[in-house]
Design a protein around this nucleic acid. Structure first.
Length: 254
DNA sequence: ATGCCTCAGCTCCTGAGA
């Protein structure tokens, strides 16, 4: 079984690339972030036509998440229960016996800003909800665009970007609090290439110059860790014409 | 401090992303 996550930065623009990628990488589950389209604009038929069911939670202009799957999705939940939020960021479902949470974490803009405070509140709420989900569902994966780096290994210029957004101690502490629930960073379970990033700025030829961040993650429970056989970033779609600024991350489990 | 790039929209500029 394979599960993947991909921030597509507008599903409207990227739909052909998502369909192409699924044709060559027929994963069982694909979590999408930053759809940037309203629910009534979601291209459900395009996915049905290639054998995928879709759950979606859209929003006009910003945010928006989806779960594509070959098997049916049950017990679907949208956003974090009890956390009042106008932004569409979380979609959760049970698929083929795995509790799958796809999430688009807030960007946070800049430490000290209102958006950073929202990011911290959102992370608090997410952690407590995931704790409860984990208690009910031992086979759990939390994947998506976290907008947080784990450490210097995830950053092309650790000194220059020290304590800037995605790299602050406060954000990283939140990420470690998720790990402390019993989750594991699946990518780090396996050998990886140098400069293993999942996002590169569109500007200044950042991708070609290998100036990126690893901010898209797949965290897995102990039960799934025991089944994991591979996990890696697929940088190929970042080389497409009109690419997303993010690349997919793919997890394989036995 | 800002551009550098990309996308959506009350679209020819602005806000947001990261």
């Amino acid at each position: 079984m394979q599960l993947a996550t991909w921030n597509v930065n507008s599903l409207n623009v990227r739909l052909p690339q998502v369909l192409d990628w699924l044709a060559t990488h027929p994963v069982d589950v694909l979590a999408l972030q930053e759809l940037k389209l309203a629910d009534d604009k979601f291209p459900a038929q395009a996915f049905t036509d290639i054998g995928y069911q879709a759950q979606w939670f859209g929003q006009k202009t910003y945010n928006g998440v989806a779960l594509l799957s070959k098997a049916p999705a049950t017990d679907v939940m949208k956003n974090i229960p009890g956390f009042d939020d106008e932004q569409s960021r979380v979609l959760c479902a049970t698929i083929a016996g795995v509790r799958v949470i796809g999430a688009y974490f807030p960007n946070g803009q800049e430490p000290g800003s209102d958006k950073f405070a929202y990011k911290m509140r959102w992370l608090d709420a997410l952690r407590e909800w995931v704790r409860a989900e984990l208690a009910q569902h031992p086979q759990l994966v939390l994947m998506g665009d976290y907008n947080i780096t784990f450490d210097d290994l995830d950053v092309w210029d650790p000194q220059g970007l020290r304590e800037t957004i995605h790299c602050t101690t406060e954000e990283r502490n939140h990420l470690q609090a998720l790990i402390a629930l019993g989750l594991t960073d699946a990518v780090r379970l396996f050998p990886q290439p140098e400069k293993n990033y999942s996002w590169w700025d569109y500007r200044e030829f950042a991708f070609r110059r290998k100036r990126g961040l690893r901010i898209d993650h797949i965290l897995i429970s102990e039960a799934l860790k025991a089944r994991a056989t591979a996990c890696a970033v697929d940088v190929a779609p970042r080389k497409n014409e009109r690419p997303s600024d993010h690349a997919p991350v793919v997890l394989s489990i036995a």
